[in-house]
């Protein structure tokens, strides 16, 4: 079941095309990575989903229904550019934003207390936002995003501005929200967080969708049959099924080699060949990181 489906979404601005025929499907209760370099069209897509702007063509469904104004209550949005009313008190501000999302006063009050306690910010409820540190303000903004318990959480670069401790705290919250049933769209160009968080990803570059699928599928499709082996002994006389790409000496008389498999030869074939020749200490299949894939695709697109 997909919580959100976008079909052939296109958006033109005066001078350029921001989104070109982009389709995505986001499975329920997943963490979905929306990746792409700056200016690729991520924010445009997010704004269309949030109904801040309208697409020129294509359609979007939420839980199978056409996207409508009522769906704003289903969505929680944390924009990349954060901001709160500086002169307003933390508690009042959260109350205001919660009520904008249609929460009742009593319910909002209860949840605000719960979240402030959870984030360790209870004693700041009566303070003005301008008196808070940047990290605290970010946490307040995160609370504002999740207060109405949205089914679909859209986080645009959620970790920017957080120190590692707080970034972890937010990460844990994201996982917990997912486990409770929320779906998270996670827009970023920082790949290490994608590696940790995302189940599915879509890559957008230059207004077009380049790639989508589950993280593991994509990695599988991008692995190139390379293996990293450390061993004792002399590597010589590999069959034509395998190429020795490079070899370097490491300490204690050990060597490390990068070996490229040809055709559809699997790791076992390589191990069989190796065992008869050298003393194998480690054997690792080289799997590209999302970062590598990202760079490979984006740079490939440039050339």
């Amino acid at each position: 079941m997909n919580i959100l489906e976008a079909h052939n979404v296109t958006k033109n601005y005066a001078a350029h095309r921001a989104l070109d025929d982009v389709s995505i499907e986001i499975p329920k209760q997943s963490i979905f990575g929306l990746l792409g370099p700056n200016g690729a069209g991520k924010t445009t897509l997010i704004r269309i989903i949030n109904q801040i702007i309208m697409s020129d063509a294509g359609n979007i469904t939420i839980n199978g229904e056409k996207l409508e104004p009522k769906h704003i209550q289903v969505i929680g949005y944390l924009p990349e550019e954060r901001g709160l009313y500086k002169k307003m008190k933390v508690g009042e501000q959260l109350m205001y934003l919660a009520q904008l999302k249609g929460l009742s006063n009593a319910e909002a009050r209860k949840r605000i207390k719960h979240w402030l306690d959870r984030m360790g910010l209870s004693e700041w409820a009566g303070k003005k936002v301008e008196d808070l540190s940047k990290g605290m303000a970010q946490k307040i903004q995160f609370i504002a995003t999740v207060l109405h318990e949205p089914e679909l959480l859209i986080l645009d670069e959620p970790f920017s501005g957080f120190d590692p401790v707080n970034a972890n705290l937010i990460k844990d919250e994201i996982f917990e929200l997912r486990d409770k049933g929320a779906t998270v769209i996670f827009s970023t160009h920082r790949m290490e967080s994608v590696e940790q968080l995302c189940d599915d990803i879509v890559l957008i570059n230059k207004s077009k969708k380049i790639l989508d699928g589950t993280k593991s599928e994509i990695k599988k499709s991008f692995k190139s049959g390379k293996y990293n082996v450390t061993y004792k002994g002399a590597m010589a006389g590999l069959s034509t099924n395998f190429d020795l790409v490079e070899t370097k000496e490491i300490e204690d008389g050990m060597s490390e080699s990068l070996i490229q498999a040809q055709g559809d030869h699997n790791p076992n074939d390589l191990i069989k060949e190796l065992i008869s020749r050298v003393e194998v200490h480690s054997f690792v299949e080289v799997i590209p990181s999302i970062n590598d894939i990202f760079i490979q695709i984006v740079e490939g697109g440039e050339s």
Partner: peptide, 15 residues
């Protein structure tokens, strides 16, 4: 103020 404090994007996602 709403524009420069960037709160506006949060608000217009609701209204």
């Amino acid at each position: 103020d709403e524009k420069t404090s960037r709160i506006v994007e949060v608000i217009v996602s609701s209204v």
